[in-house]
């Protein structure tokens, strides 16, 4: 089967992901990998290429920013589907804006015009409007003010959740109209990865809280014994 129904069986075999509503992922990585064997080789290669620029655990940490951007632009240009290309580009543009927010909050100056600090349509706008709270991008990203506020407050968990929400909504919006094609598979994987990140983030937070409670309990015990 070719065309828009190429991956009917694959998509029908994948459970719905409800993001923050679900505490545990409805399908684990191993099982997902098994299902993805139904992909055609060229589609699989394309998705692996996309994953290598958007998935944190697949990005080559040996690359510096400039090398990463060159690679990302090459991979994006090679994506055959316009919807998928726009989706990946949008994901990296959101990441660029968040990175700029973090850099500015860390006290960094305006990135030099020859430096590679981001990707997409808004790089120059961010440079020009470095001093503005929303980089002059509120029209594109209405959530920027909330993100800056959380960053200023040191609310790491809130910021993480906001970023995941925004990225999730962007992927879900792009996915609309694609049910059983390669785009549907790609956007499903993007959403799975976001849900996985949130599940892990929760797990890390829970582990930290558990450690804090344990430390508190042990210190109480020492005080009692003393």
């Amino acid at each position: 089967m070719s065309g828009p129904e190429r991956y009917v069986m694959l998509m029908a075999s994948l459970p719905a992901i409800r993001f923050l509503a679900d505490k545990a992922l409805p399908i684990n990585q191993a099982r997902l990998g098994e299902r993805l064997k139904l992909l055609e080789p060229e589609d699989r290669d394309e998705l692996l290429g996309i994953a290598s620029i958007i998935s944190w655990n697949r990005i080559d940490v040996g690359d510096d920013d400039a090398a990463y951007l060159v690679r990302a632009e090459r991979i994006i240009a090679g994506i055959r589907s316009a919807a998928l290309r726009d989706g990946v580009q949008e994901r990296l543009e959101i990441r660029t804006v968040i990175a700029a927010l973090r850099r500015r909050a860390a006290g960094e100056d305006v990135p030099a015009s020859n430096s590679a600090f981001g990707l997409g349509r808004h790089v120059e706008t961010i440079r020009r409007n470095w001093a503005l709270p929303d980089f002059g991008l509120a029209r594109f990203y209405p959530w920027l003010a909330a993100a800056k506020e959380k960053l200023d407050q040191g609310d790491a968990s809130g910021l993480e959740r906001l970023i995941l929400d925004v990225t999730w909504n962007a992927a879900a919006r792009r996915e609309f109209g694609h049910e059983f094609d390669l785009e549907a598979v790609a956007f499903y994987l993007m959403r799975w990865q976001l849900a996985d990140r949130w599940a892990r983030y929760d797990a890390d937070a829970a582990a930290l809280r558990f450690k804090a409670l344990l430390d508190a309990a042990l210190s109480d015990r020492h005080e009692v014994n003393a």
Binding site: M1, E5, V8, M11, A12, S13, P15, F180
Partner: peptide, 13 residues
């Protein structure tokens, strides 16, 4: 064929 493939996929899940 299209609906049948969906049925097979759903059976996996």
């Amino acid at each position: 064929a299209v609906a049948g493939q969906a049925a097979i996929g759903a059976m996996l899940e």
